[in-house]
């Protein structure tokens, strides 16, 4: 599983990355988490804002910090 956290590095993006990493650790799944900070690369996803979370190429949330529980539902499907 490949997870990308899109965001240039503000506190909201950092909080999102933290929640994603904690959710992955708790689930025990084998997932790679990457932080994408490059604006041009973020723009390729067409998101209206950041932070955003992308799981296996599909954008799951935009412009908000997802709760750990919500992330769990995405990765455990």
């Amino acid at each position: 599983m490949e997870i990308k956290v899109l965001g240039p590095g503000c506190p909201k993006c950092q909080a999102t990355e933290k929640n994603v990493k904690e959710a992955v650790a708790e689930s025990g799944l084998d997932a790679q988490v990457d932080k994408v900070t490059d604006i041009m690369e973020i723009a390729r996803y067409g998101v209206f804002g950041t932070p955003a979370v992308v799981i296996d190429g599909k954008v799951k949330c935009v412009g908000k910090i997802p709760e750990k529980q919500e992330i769990m539902t995405w990765i455990e499907k």
Binding site: Y45, G46, V47, F48, G49, A52, V54, G57, K58, V59, K60, C61, V62, G63, K64
Partner: peptide, 17 residues
């Protein structure tokens, strides 16, 4: 058009805004 194309970045952005 991005929403019409069902591109996830556009669809999810519109749902979350």
């Amino acid at each position: 058009a991005g929403i019409g194309g069902h591109l996830s970045g556009f669809v999810q952005s519109t749902k979350d805004v």
